[in-house]
Simulated scan of single mutants.
Amino acid sequence: MPILTLTGNAADEESRDDVCPNCGKTNGIRFLGSAIATQLSTVVTTLFGDRHLDDGEKKALVFTDSVQDAAHRAGFIQSRARVFNLRNAVRQAVAEETTLDDIPAAMMASAHTPSERYRLLPPDLAEREGFRAFWDTEKAASAVVRKRVQRRLAFDLALEFGLESRVGRTLEETGSLAAHVEAGPATRLEAVGRVAVEGLEVDWSLDDARDGLMDAASVVRWVRGTLERLRERGAIDHPWLNKYVENDGNRHWVWGGRPRQEGMPAFPPRTRSARFCKGGQEDKRFTRISARHGHLLAELVRTVDCSLPRRRSVGGREARSTALRDTRPRRDRDVETDHRR
């Protein structure tokens, strides 16, 4: 990689003006900074991930001037290394189109040595009694241990392709793998979508062939977009989230009351957690499909040529406005009103 520098008698002055040595543009240089721990984890992971590097040479020596910094950076690098090891294992296990449910078993089947099995587990779980038998033996682990590891890997995959799919160098963001929601044929999606949008008004004119109904392609497009949005917000089914969903997103079931003995990570307050979709009013915990000012209906209004039903009081009762609107120019309507007066 060539290194370009400023030379000549005007090099000092051009350096002060941030002149780009490549194109010569003044103020054309921007400095991008990053935390030391982030840079270290990226460098170490990239070097250690080289398949041509011998396992005996995969050692790192990091210097720091503080005991606290040393402890923090060691833990941070270890944590980040596990994330990249997990992504490498997922990429190697996926040879063709598959489902999230099938990937954990393929990952475990591809881990033949204790070192390869160890890298599948988070650092805080690898030494626990309930997980250590998975890697610290030459014999096959028991069915109970393997099931416990498989459930944790399934949850990690749900985060990788769901809640955390747009954060950092994920498999999707780097283009290594692509995920989508398999929800069945378009006819099924249309049927589900029409039930969800029942009562919405469509802007149309008298010569419109739709007759006030949303076309099938628009409904299917909205349903697919809604499913992908829910996936990216973490709404992927997993046994550890059952009570969390049943209790309308009560943080207790993913924090203090989570099954920590099974290896579930914590989601303390003020951290992102999965947002599922349910009926009722919109709130900060779940996405509500029927909320008048919710995200899903707002996306429908932007995607499809429709509007939310307006309510007006008639004789003390609420009545919905008609979907048929006068499409003539406002000036013509005003003239007709003046004649009537």
Rank of each mutant, 00 (worst) to 15 (best):
185 P>I: 06
226 T>S: 15
189 L>A: 13
241 L>Y: 09
201 E>L: 15
238 H>A: 08
227 L>H: 04
220 V>R: 03
175 G>W: 03
175 G>C: 05
181 V>Q: 05
225 G>R: 09
226 T>G: 09
193 G>T: 06
188 R>A: 13
209 A>I: 12
222 W>T: 08
230 L>E: 07
169 R>T: 10
237 D>Q: 12
186 A>S: 14
176 S>N: 12
214 M>I: 11
184 G>C: 07
198 E>L: 06
229 R>F: 14
188 R>W: 01
209 A>P: 10
193 G>H: 09
170 T>D: 06
224 R>V: 13
210 R>Q: 11
237 D>A: 13
186 A>Y: 00
170 T>W: 03
203 D>M: 02
185 P>C: 02
195 V>F: 10
176 S>Q: 12
175 G>R: 03
218 S>H: 06
227 L>K: 01
208 D>A: 14
181 V>I: 15
197 V>N: 01
221 R>F: 00
201 E>Y: 00
198 E>R: 13
203 D>Q: 05
212 G>C: 05
195 V>T: 12
234 G>S: 07
224 R>L: 07
234 G>V: 08
175 G>F: 05
184 G>R: 03
180 H>R: 15
241 L>H: 07
224 R>D: 12
180 H>E: 11
228 E>C: 04
167 V>R: 14
194 R>H: 03
226 T>V: 10
173 E>N: 13
241 L>G: 03
234 G>K: 07
230 L>A: 15
224 R>A: 11
169 R>M: 12
228 E>K: 02
204 W>D: 09
215 D>E: 13
198 E>F: 06
223 V>Q: 07
231 R>P: 07
216 A>D: 13
188 R>I: 08
183 A>V: 04
185 P>M: 01
172 E>K: 04
213 L>F: 04
191 A>P: 00
183 A>S: 15
190 E>H: 14
237 D>Y: 11
209 A>M: 06
180 H>T: 10
172 E>S: 11
170 T>S: 15
180 H>G: 08
172 E>L: 11
219 V>P: 04
233 R>H: 14
237 D>K: 08
